[in-house]
Design a protein around this nucleic acid. Sequence first.
DNA 1: CCGCCTTATTGGTCAGACCATTTCCGAGTC
DNA 2: GACTCGGAAATGGTCTGACCAATAAGGCGG
Lengths: 242, 242
Amino acid sequence: MTEERDGLHAYEVVLKHIEAGILAGTHHPGDQLPTERDLAAQLAVSRSAVREAMRVLQTQGLITSSTGPGRGTRIAPSRGDALARIFQLHLMLSDAGTADLTETRIALERSSAALAARRTNARSLRKLRGLMVAMDGAEEVDEFNDLDTDFHVQIARTGQSELIADLTVGIRQAVREAIRTASAALPNWPEHRDQLRHEHAEILSAIESGDSAAAANLVEQHIRRAYVTLGIGTDEEPPNPR
Amino acid sequence: MTEERDGLHAYEVVLKHIEAGILAGTHHPGDQLPTERDLAAQLAVSRSAVREAMRVLQTQGLITSSTGPGRGTRIAPSRGDALARIFQLHLMLSDAGTADLTETRIALERSSAALAARRTNARSLRKLRGLMVAMDGAEEVDEFNDLDTDFHVQIARTGQSELIADLTVGIRQAVREAIRTASAALPNWPEHRDQLRHEHAEILSAIESGDSAAAANLVEQHIRRAYVTLGIGTDEEPPNPR
DNA sequence: CCGCCTTATTGGTCAGACCATTTCCGAGTC
DNA sequence: GACTCGGAAATGGTCTGACCAATAAGGCGG
């Protein structure tokens, strides 16, 4: 076999080979892949090229590797937070305005909250209540803001759609710092904080009672009110009007 | 310097080094990175490790490389469709139900359409009109479906928020095959196709006239009607109710 | 039968070489 | 002086081969 690579880089040959299996639905979570040395031989590239492709897929949360006989590399059973991290990096480099980000965040968190309301489970509710309690005891901006982020993330995770959850998490993480800074500059922080506590309680209540429509609407109001108070993302008409 | 890597893999050292620069806002699109050999020396890892990290960032669309003195590697000025491709792979492996996907797609495309209506430009409108014309001439399922995908993608691109566009593109690409299969099985495909043409025309009209609310609503109706006709994603109450 | 030790497998890392492309610069030419 | 051409150097791309580290499996002695 001559090296017909059609201008593709060596690592791309490997990457496309595996991605094709995923996109075609022939690779499923848990499936075992050939060893790096075998793949290199099969595709007529060096092991380095195979390893570069493996790294790419690993950092995208698509495969996991471990050493030892019979171990090796397999399609990841769960994607972890890789997508959220990648998403966050893209957000940092993107020129998306704060307003766009806000509207996207609202669109995603409406989905998250509604899903959460329809798929509650005892463990998630316990975590959410725990975060509420923790926030009741958090007076300062930094501590409260971290818990606030966790609260929204936990709602996303409750929906049991890891994809939507990952996106939600990524965007919430990305705006975390901006929210922190704006909060710290608020003259009436204690009032704002109490308002947030109140809204969180309402949202949790809607989720607990399984009212997905209410949960979605409350989350949207919650986010909009917070951004108005913080003075961010209000420079143009909402791109997602209702 | 002793190799204090704290359990991190060699490539992770490099990856985190560069990601940190991005997340901290010290790296901006267009910025030049050190050469692979320099980075390897600085971080006390082998060049292979540096290359693995570079591959990861390249495939995520975050950096670009070229050879030659003074060229090298830099932060990508534009992220391309890398995020959409990664997103698509995650969708394939995720257990997200079709219903969840549909609702998320609606949430995102509402945003896309509304943004497009507020940020129209001659070039985008020309492309959209061109796709409409092409669809008028496309009778068969496969050809029409490809153009349909392009139409939705182009709307997303028109919004000028690459982030939302990438997400929209990823999810639309991911459901492309499912839509194609379901369409091919439709007994009354010609009627469905004509209905889609009609709805596309309405959406384009709303975008042209800058009516973002109408554009968002029309897109939502368009997607919902299509999924009902195709018999997918209707197995539960909408998670994003209004 | 149990526990330990050896061995084989497999990913992780490294060093070094060579290649391909591109820029840069200087010698030579008009 | 300007222009062209050719070689040197920079830089990412690829390959080879070696060795390390973790782990599982099998064998051996008790």
